[in-house]
Amino acid sequence: MKSQIYIISALVFALIIAVFAVINVAPVEVNYLFVTTESPLILVILSSALFGSLMTGGFSIYQFIKLRKKMRALETENQNLRMNKVYHADAEVEEITEVELIDEQK
C-alpha cells in the first residue's frame, strides 16, 4: 500500500511539473559558470526536475544497499547466536546427565 501511495504521488508531481513546464516556453538565458546560453525554459525546468530525481534516486539506492548490507550482517550474527545457544543448551544437558550419574553412583 505504501509503495502505491509513493507511485501515485510521483505521478501527480510529474504531471504538475509537466504542466508548469509547458506553460513556460519562453527562451531564457542560463549561466553555466563559464558559458552562457539561451534555451527554452521548458528544457531548463524538465532537466532540473530530471537531475533532481536522479540525485534523489541515487541517494535512495545507496541507502538501500547500506541497509541491506547491515541486515545481512545482523542475520549472520543472529544465526551465530542461535547456534551458540543450541551448543550451550546441549552442554547443559550433558552436565545435568553427568550430575545425575554421579548422584546415582553415591
Rank of each mutant, 00 (worst) to 15 (best):
residue 2 K to G: 07
residue 4 Q to Y: 15
residue 4 Q to I: 14
residue 4 Q to R: 14
residue 5 I to N: 14
residue 5 I to K: 14
residue 6 Y to N: 06
residue 10 A to T: 02
residue 11 L to I: 05
residue 11 L to T: 04
residue 13 F to D: 06
residue 14 A to I: 03
residue 15 L to P: 09
residue 15 L to Q: 15
residue 16 I to L: 05
residue 19 V to G: 07
residue 20 F to E: 00
residue 20 F to C: 01
residue 20 F to Y: 04
residue 21 A to L: 08
residue 25 V to L: 01
residue 25 V to G: 08
residue 25 V to Y: 09
residue 26 A to W: 02
residue 29 E to S: 06
residue 30 V to H: 02
residue 31 N to P: 01
residue 32 Y to R: 03
residue 35 V to A: 02
residue 35 V to S: 08
residue 36 T to A: 07
residue 40 P to H: 05
residue 42 I to N: 01
residue 42 I to A: 05
residue 43 L to T: 03
residue 44 V to S: 01
residue 44 V to W: 01
residue 44 V to N: 00
residue 46 L to M: 08
residue 46 L to F: 04
residue 46 L to Y: 06
residue 46 L to P: 04
residue 47 S to N: 10
residue 47 S to M: 10
residue 47 S to I: 06
residue 47 S to L: 07
residue 47 S to C: 08
residue 49 A to K: 09
residue 49 A to Y: 01
residue 50 L to G: 09
residue 50 L to D: 04
residue 50 L to A: 14
residue 52 G to S: 13
residue 52 G to R: 06
residue 53 S to H: 12
residue 53 S to V: 14
residue 55 M to K: 09
residue 55 M to Y: 13
residue 55 M to I: 15
residue 56 T to Q: 12
residue 56 T to R: 14
residue 56 T to P: 00
residue 57 G to I: 14
residue 58 G to P: 00
residue 59 F to H: 06
residue 60 S to K: 11
residue 63 Q to M: 11
residue 63 Q to E: 15
residue 63 Q to G: 08
residue 64 F to M: 05
residue 64 F to G: 02
residue 65 I to H: 15
residue 68 R to N: 14
residue 68 R to K: 04
residue 69 K to C: 05
residue 70 K to C: 03
residue 70 K to E: 11
residue 71 M to R: 05
residue 71 M to S: 11
residue 73 A to E: 12
residue 74 L to N: 03
residue 75 E to S: 13
residue 77 E to D: 09
residue 78 N to E: 06
residue 81 L to K: 05
residue 81 L to I: 02
residue 82 R to L: 11
residue 82 R to G: 02
residue 82 R to E: 02
residue 83 M to Q: 14
residue 83 M to W: 03
residue 86 V to K: 01
residue 86 V to I: 10
residue 87 Y to V: 07
residue 87 Y to G: 04
residue 89 A to K: 06
residue 89 A to P: 00
residue 90 D to E: 12
residue 90 D to T: 08
residue 91 A to Q: 10
residue 91 A to D: 12
residue 93 V to H: 05
residue 93 V to F: 06
residue 93 V to S: 01
residue 93 V to C: 10
residue 94 E to F: 06
residue 96 I to R: 07
residue 97 T to S: 04
residue 97 T to C: 11
residue 98 E to Y: 03
residue 99 V to C: 03
residue 100 E to H: 06
residue 101 L to H: 12
residue 101 L to G: 14
residue 102 I to P: 01
residue 103 D to Q: 15
residue 104 E to T: 00
residue 106 K to I: 05
residue 106 K to H: 10
residue 106 K to M: 15
